[in-house]
């Protein structure tokens, strides 16, 4: 059930890190950057059970697409950084 203010243009995603610590790290790293157009796109992030959930709503589909795809890029980067340099890193 979606309670978006801007009815159609909303999107959700959930990433299961299987670890509360890693999910929180990604959450904290991504939460620093606010949405560039807060009047057009809203982003809501939460962490629970080692899962990061992000909810997006936008006034127009094109704003939603831009924000969502940029978010996926940085989320992927943060995740890869943990995989590469988190606990048990080689060296």
């Amino acid at each position: 059930m979606c309670y978006c203010k801007w009815n159609d243009n909303c999107s959700d995603m959930e990433i299961d890190f299987g670890s509360e610590e890693n999910a929180s790290i990604v959450f904290s790293a991504l939460a620093v950057d606010k949405e560039l157009q807060p009047d057009k796109v809203k982003r809501l992030m939460t962490v629970s059970d080692g899962k990061l959930s992000a909810h997006f709503e936008a006034t127009e589909a094109r704003f939603l697409r831009a924000s969502f795809s940029a978010f996926v890029d940085v989320m992927t980067l943060a995740t890869k950084t943990i995989e590469e340099f988190g606990q048990g890193m080689k060296l």
Binding site: I25, A29, A78, T81, F85
Partner: peptide
């Protein structure tokens, strides 16, 4: 902006990890 964000994200994650 977008290129700057790449370094910022990695630094934040590494700061939390290390």
């Amino acid at each position: 902006g977008a290129p700057l964000q790449v370094s910022a994200i990695v630094v934040r994650v590494l700061s939390l990890l290390w």
